[in-house]
Design a protein around this nucleic acid. Sequence first.
DNA 1: CGCTGGATTGAGGCCGATCAACTTCAGTGG
DNA 2: CCACTGAAGTTGATCGGCCTCAATCCAGCG
Lengths: 232, 232
Amino acid sequence: MINTTIFEFCDHCSFVPFCLPGERNLSWATQINHAVKQFRSLKRNEILCLPNNKFQNLYAIQHGVIKTYQTEADGNELIRGFYFAGEILGYEAIYTNRYPFSAAALSETVICEIPYANFLELLQAKPLLQKRILYLMSRQLNMGSYLVSTTAEQRIAAFLLDLAMRLHPMEEIIEFVLPITRQDMGRYLRLTAETVSRAFSRLQKMKVIAINHRKIEFLCLDKLRQIAEGVG
Amino acid sequence: MINTTIFEFCDHCSFVPFCLPGERNLSWATQINHAVKQFRSLKRNEILCLPNNKFQNLYAIQHGVIKTYQTEADGNELIRGFYFAGEILGYEAIYTNRYPFSAAALSETVICEIPYANFLELLQAKPLLQKRILYLMSRQLNMGSYLVSTTAEQRIAAFLLDLAMRLHPMEEIIEFVLPITRQDMGRYLRLTAETVSRAFSRLQKMKVIAINHRKIEFLCLDKLRQIAEGVG
DNA sequence: CGCTGGATTGAGGCCGATCAACTTCAGTGG
DNA sequence: CCACTGAAGTTGATCGGCCTCAATCCAGCG
């Protein structure tokens, strides 16, 4: 019962080799239950953590989307990252010992709470898993490297490609539903919602994508990649 | 002899607890010499690694400055980070298994090469050091978080504060020599050298800093911090 | 049905880029 | 000692991409 429930969601989680190394059975599942509080559920817009909250947990996203963000002095919201199913949030706080951002759910979201103390214990007990965690944190360092691109179109193209890959890590999809508003894309890419919308319209006119509200389709992946790379 | 030579430079290195946990003596120093190739020296503008080079080493900067950068399709150079004495370069490559950027010395620079395989071995042998490495990688995740700020002045102010702190981690200095050209600051902050120069002039006119070529002095730290935060 | 939040599109303004001229300074060699 | 050279920095004038503000459209939903 709990067995299937857990594994069903855990299949795509980057924390799996950490939670479930080797055989998958109920005894192991109950064992890790001491380290990982499974399945805390968040409603749309519900807040997961606030800046300066003491760092205690990493969070593995089971299902849904979380954004991390900080609010500037003028009230402007800057999004630092999005986290999708299978990704882990909170590495930044290891250094600061406090969450350096707010985190909120963009939709119905289910997470695993991973108390950092338990995380460290598990890591010590299973030294082979160290390598995996270094790999995951290194991945985090590479996140959003396209944010430095100069033009709006470039960043938006790169963001779309990033999104498609992270939403469907196994398959190469060309059609999906955007889980993020234009506004929030802009808050992440340092653009306004209007600029994002205009760029979408332009890309559509160029027949690189087809977009209708949240539904998007890549019509020419090569062209999209070129735009993301700043070619042409 | 080698003893003092090593320790003299290692005092401020964030890798120290990894290299030199506990007592400092020659036997330990020779021991780590197997894991860490000490003191490779780079001339100004000398290249340390190129994009798509196979990942093999982390690099600890002993002395000097390294920049990591990538070149866009149009030849424009984007700087991803600066690394100063005591800092470690290369975590990004753990995930990609190749360096995702070029790295070059901005001045005479001395580094330690740390082969990643040896790094992992050492980590397994000394599990207590795991925590330290997670801490350092988490720090890296927080690097340059001010790059998202909206205005040029804000990013520049934040950069100056960051620079002062990292160049002199122990003391709170208000006067130092910029180790980086305006051009490279711009390439990091996504601004042109002209914009950087103009911002400096404006900050000087506001009596927040005094600047003359590479020599800079903070005249009003509070104001500088406020500007960095976007207040006022 | 109207309401509400998200998305699109247009008009005008501003910040930073671009292009260009000039200055300063370090290094070199006569 | 000074002339020459080239890189770095400063300052000004103009241009363009993105922001701002505003109107409209559209889908979802009570």
